[in-house]
Nucleic acid binder design. Structure first.
Lengths: 140, 140
DNA sequence: TTATCCGTATCTAAATTAGATACAAAAGGA
DNA sequence: TCCTTTTGTATCTAATTTAGATACGGATAA
């Protein structure tokens, strides 16, 4: 169960809710209920995608590089993505008409489905998530 | 790498290409390049979804229950699905506004994205895959 | 100079995945 | 009736993935 995409969204949402205050990976870890090291491993991807910046030392921590409205879940998914959404089987039999040709056919169709999924994620921003979370919080 | 969805599509495509002839799990296993037992584990899901029937003994094997045009990749995905497309992290901190409310918010948004992905898969049938495979085969 | 905090590496335990084998039961043919 | 084929399922193992845990050098500010 690879929950890193969910953890990444959680992290960015926590940053959004915190306004412009710096937040440490330890604080995020407390909210996610995991260790700071795991959070920092997730942050590695978010930093590479220029969604957050981080600073060492006293008063350091994390900050969003853009407004929450300008960070879509598509950006987050793309940043965190390490494997295919629909993994292919490999080493199919080249002596079989199906085995020899199925891989590129599936790759193409699966890519289409993944692209459609990304379009769906593109419509949701971290600001949307933060608003949903805060609305739920205030209604309890 | 959970390739069972790909293997399931491969299996159904092989059945479609074989017309109405019965095919054994050993033959499918040769095409996929895996052991018959694994194929039969995949078939368990396809049988439960009424996409194939199987018969023991001499001349036994597998058969589609519908025309390939009437089997969508959405049906196959749904049949094979055992885990969420976007796994959630659990045990988030209930004392944090974000930790206490993020799970249902993400579940809702992720479900939307998964539904859009399924709509995409619904547009592709096993007949489409079989046609693509045979076209590729004949053009080599 | 000291206390934080990040970035990264490493180790471990748990879970998942698929390969391999085995065998009872079903089903058809001799 | 007996034999062969094939399924359905169980079990075991090895490889891989995932996340928890710890550690530590380097950056940063007080």
């Amino acid at each position: 169960m690879n929950s890193q995409f969910a953890v990444a969204v959680h992290t960015l949402t926590a940053l959004a809710v915190s306004g412009n205050q710096r937040v440490t990976s330890e604080q995020i870890g407390e909210s996610v209920n995991t260790n700071p090291s795991f959070i920092r491993r997730v942050l590695k991807h978010l930093r590479a995608a220029h969604l957050v910046t981080s600073r060492s030392g006293v008063g350091g921590g994390l900050q969003l590089t853009k407004a929450p409205e300008d960070i879509s879940l598509k950006m987050v998914y793309t940043a965190m993505r390490t494997t295919d959404l629909f993994p292919l089987h490999t080493n199919t039999n080249p002596d079989c008409p199906v085995g020899n040709n199925i891989a590129p056919v599936l790759a193409h169709r699966f890519a289409d489905a993944e692209a459609d999924m990304l379009e769906s994620l593109a419509k949701v921003s971290i600001a949307d998530i933060a608003r949903d979370v805060l609305t739920r919080y205030q209604n309890v």
